[in-house]
Simulated scan of single mutants.
Amino acid sequence: MSVVIMSRTKETLDQVAKEIGDKTGQRVKVAVADFTKEDVFGEIEGQLQDLNVGVLVNNVGMLPSYFPGRFLESAELDQTITKVINCNVKTMAKMCKIFLPGMANRGKGVIVNISSGIACIPFPMYTLYAASKVFVERFSQGLQAEYKDKGIIIQTVAPFGVSTRMAAYQQTNIVTSSPEDFVKSSLQYLRAGDKTHGSVCHTVMGWLLQSIPLQVIYAESVLSSLQDYIKKKTGYEASIPESSPTFKIQLNEQEE
């Protein structure tokens, strides 16, 4: 397949495009877009309107802060709300709106939407982020019910620990996967239903999290311990808001 990669940093995109091209021999198209902004989709649609997109991976995401904190403690809260909704919610729906019609017409296609393991419960201290990922799951599950008989696979992938910038590149272990290992694992579950945690370990973590009474998770001592744990793991203070780079990949059917 030829590939289109989309992100907000052209230098990084060009580097990744070269790596993919050198390794696979396939064509790689680069498109620069910042999905925290309001009006980027018209330009995207114009650039890609002649492509038959066979696989869409909505992996764009923004975490308001590495450090867990209460909703009202977020820096520049109004802007943060707008950016998170644009990036984590609006973008996924808009990209599906652009490319799902072609898949439906051809009677085949795959859409993978990346959620988060913490969306399996109402998750305090990451309230806005977790809520945005619940939308990803419900929207994807509804679309799969609507378009499954059209031959289209629409799946939510909800990982826990993956060593990316969003997770401050934590050291990999049995709980925290490298991006490469997680992708290989999660693709094995592509036909396993409308939602997967992407690995056996992350599936077990989801089950454990849902089995803990919410009053235990919401205890002040537990929330304080979470803050201490994240501070120790990442070295980031609550006063430093960070976000992941917006990043999106589309895999396109090979053109003749």
Results as ranks from 00 to 15, higher is better:
1 M>R: 09
1 M>Q: 05
3 V>T: 15
8 R>F: 07
10 K>D: 06
11 E>Y: 09
11 E>F: 10
14 D>V: 08
18 K>T: 14
19 E>D: 15
21 G>I: 04
21 G>V: 00
29 K>Y: 10
29 K>I: 10
30 V>Y: 03
33 A>W: 12
34 D>G: 14
37 K>Y: 06
38 E>Y: 12
40 V>I: 14
45 E>F: 02
47 Q>C: 10
48 L>I: 07
49 Q>V: 14
51 L>G: 02
57 V>T: 15
60 V>H: 02
61 G>P: 00
62 M>L: 15
64 P>I: 08
64 P>V: 10
67 F>E: 02
68 P>K: 00
70 R>A: 10
71 F>G: 05
74 S>P: 07
75 A>N: 14
75 A>V: 11
76 E>L: 05
77 L>Y: 13
78 D>E: 14
81 I>T: 02
81 I>K: 01
84 V>M: 04
92 M>D: 07
93 A>D: 07
93 A>G: 12
93 A>S: 14
95 M>K: 00
97 K>T: 10
97 K>P: 07
99 F>P: 00
99 F>K: 03
102 G>C: 04
104 A>M: 10
106 R>P: 02
107 G>V: 13
110 V>H: 15
111 I>Y: 01
112 V>L: 13
114 I>R: 01
117 G>I: 06
118 I>S: 06
121 I>D: 09
125 M>H: 04
127 T>Y: 07
128 L>R: 11
128 L>C: 11
129 Y>S: 01
132 S>L: 04
132 S>M: 08
133 K>S: 03
136 V>E: 00
136 V>L: 05
136 V>H: 01
140 S>N: 02
140 S>D: 00
140 S>G: 02
142 G>F: 09
142 G>M: 12
143 L>R: 10
144 Q>N: 14
149 D>I: 04
149 D>Y: 06
150 K>T: 08
150 K>H: 12
150 K>W: 06
150 K>C: 09
154 I>K: 01
155 Q>K: 10
156 T>C: 15
159 P>E: 02
161 G>S: 08
162 V>C: 01
165 R>L: 14
166 M>C: 06
166 M>W: 06
166 M>V: 13
167 A>T: 11
168 A>G: 01
169 Y>C: 11
169 Y>R: 12
170 Q>E: 09
172 T>D: 13
172 T>I: 15
173 N>R: 05
173 N>V: 05
175 V>I: 13
175 V>P: 06
178 S>W: 08
179 P>Q: 03
183 V>E: 03
184 K>M: 02
186 S>Q: 03
191 R>T: 10
191 R>G: 07
194 D>L: 07
195 K>Q: 14
196 T>A: 02
196 T>K: 01
197 H>A: 13
197 H>V: 05
197 H>P: 04
199 S>V: 08
199 S>R: 03
200 V>K: 13
201 C>V: 15
202 H>M: 03
204 V>N: 10
206 G>Y: 00
207 W>K: 14
208 L>C: 13
208 L>I: 13
212 I>F: 03
212 I>D: 03
213 P>N: 09
213 P>G: 11
217 I>T: 08
219 A>I: 11
219 A>K: 08
228 D>M: 11
232 K>Y: 15
234 T>R: 04
235 G>I: 01
235 G>D: 08
236 Y>I: 05
237 E>G: 11
237 E>R: 07
238 A>D: 05
238 A>I: 11
239 S>Y: 10
241 P>G: 05
241 P>S: 05
244 S>C: 02
247 F>R: 08
251 L>W: 08
252 N>F: 04
254 Q>T: 10
254 Q>W: 09
256 E>R: 06
